[in-house]
Amino acid sequence: MRQINRRRMLAQMLALGVAPHALLARAQGLPNKPVTLVVPFAPGGNLDVVARAIAPALEQTLGRNVIVDNRPGAGGVIGATAVSRAEPDGSTLLVTTPNAIVVLPKMTRTSFKLASFSPVGLVSTTALVVVVKGNDTRFRDIAALLAHARANPGKVTVGHAGPGTTNHMAALQLEDAAKIRLNEVPYKGSAPALIDLMGGQIDLVVDQLTSSAPHIQSGALRALAVMSRERDPALSKVPTLREAGLANFEATTATGLLAPVGTPAAVVDAINGALRKVLAEGSVKSRLLSVGSVAQSSSPQELLASLQREDARAQTLAAAGRLKAPD
């Protein structure tokens, strides 16, 4: 009977000129209003680039307008807070890395925690890179940069997207692995950090390839190393930090979609299904690859398990005094 009714509804909606995906979205409980993808960082950063790469296809699949809304500030707290307080109906989603929702609450007082969100699904993974100004002659390679940092503890400035972000955590990981100490300069996202790097105000930036790639391609920036286990296909000539002598070093960025807690399971599943369909499309995969990211999908349960592991790791770091609240 359900199959007959669905076919009947499809026929009726098609007769009225309504697209089938709009009917299915309505049948699965999605509200008849635009879907907002909240990016908790400034335009031009990794999360912004990924959100804008999937938004057009997601809009077509859901049968709803999809809007990318940048809410930068406090390392992701402002955007994450807005989503945690939004109506739990699937119309407001957070585009985020794990750090914004599991690390920041260990560093500063927030009105949200991991339990404030319903995971929807993984979107992509992105390589992290160490970049310097294109014409900076001090650092011909990563070995030269590390040697300079060791000889000048606390004097080499590193920019990152904000306290508690993936970039920040990767910079801390680099300091520990290389036995160096850098002067950290937090920003409200990768884009303003890269602007200051190109302007010569700071020495290096730990960043996602998605936001750094255009500047690397133009020559304004130069990549010294990638932080992933293997070389990235988009930067095949750039060595890994493992190749630079930092054994077992690995750091990448995972991006996912989250909804406010209380969002009906049927709505979460509907959005997850649409997201999986989008990420399987060749054009979306190519678009993500072109900006340095790899499409990766998951179930809501798989994303939750991953976030819970990150939450436990952040708790261990916080207990050891490694996570400091921003000044």
Rank of each mutant, 00 (worst) to 15 (best):
Arg64Lys: 04
Ala51Arg: 06
Gly63Ser: 03
Arg71Gly: 05
Gly75Ala: 03
Arg71Pro: 04
Val68Thr: 14
Leu47Thr: 10
Pro43Leu: 09
Ile67His: 05
Arg64Asp: 07
Asp69Gln: 11
Arg52Ala: 06
Val68His: 09
Asn70Tyr: 11
Gly44Ile: 03
Asn65Ser: 14
Ala55Asp: 04
Val66Gly: 08
Arg64Ile: 03
Asn46Pro: 10
Pro56Ser: 14
Gly63Leu: 02
Asn65Met: 09
Asp48Leu: 00
Gly76His: 00
Gly75Gln: 03
Ala53Pro: 13
Gly44Pro: 12
Val50Gln: 14
Asn65Pro: 14
Leu62Trp: 03
Ala74Glu: 06
Arg52Met: 05
Asn65Cys: 08
Ala53Met: 04
Gln60Lys: 12
Ala57Met: 05
Pro43Glu: 12
Ile67Gly: 01
Glu59Ser: 15
Val68Pro: 13
Ile67Ser: 02
Phe41Ala: 12
Ala55Ile: 00
Arg71Cys: 08
Gln60Asn: 13
Val68Ala: 10
Ala57Phe: 07
Asn65Asp: 15
Ala55Leu: 02
Val50Trp: 14
Leu58Lys: 07
Pro56Val: 08
Leu47Ser: 11
Val50Lys: 13
Phe41Val: 05
Arg64Tyr: 08
Asn46His: 14
Asn46Ser: 15
Val49Pro: 08
Leu47Arg: 11
Pro72Trp: 11
Phe41Met: 08
Glu59Asn: 15
Thr61Arg: 10
Ile54Glu: 00
Arg52Ser: 11
Asn65Val: 10
Val68Gln: 10
Arg64Ala: 03
Gln60Leu: 10
Asn70Leu: 14
Leu47Asp: 04
Ala42Cys: 12
Arg64Asn: 09
Ile54Asp: 02
Gly76Met: 00
Pro72Met: 13
Thr61Cys: 03
Gln60Ile: 01
Val68Leu: 13
